[in-house]
Amino acid sequence: MSSVASGKGVQFTIVSRRNNSSSQHGRLLVFGSLGLFTLLVAAGFALAGAWPVLPFAGMECVALYLAYRWLQRHDGDYESISIEGDCVVVETRDGGKVQRHELSRYWAQVVVDESVGRRRRVFLRAHGREVEFGRLLCDDAKVGLAKRLRARLSG
């Protein structure tokens, strides 16, 4: 996961993305070739009379597809926090679902949940609404981001 800061057009923006080391093409090649090989082997045995290999190969291909699909869906996940005029905007993309939350900059508070034994969670809270952010960051980076955001909000 990475975070990028920029100030183009808005006063403050931070974007964090997943660290994906494979390309879409690479994933398709790997999962596709595995599934194809499995099915070819199973088809060969089915031709020799051992057809019960086929359903197991099929189930495995489903599992491979689900893993591939999960990677594809989450490939473009990101989270951005920006301060635009009087608003703090938190935009997240999680598995293809994009959500945008706008909170008043002057009322927004940054809070950190530090329940012992759990991962830290950071929230923006205003007017009874609470929006979690920093889900793609590690604990230390979450706290760092929370501090920076606090400084910006009070500045």
């Binding site: 499995t38 199973a42 290999v53």
Partner: peptide
Amino acid sequence: VAAMPVLAG
């Protein structure tokens, strides 16, 4: 991944 379905069958 390639071998296990064969054993299961």
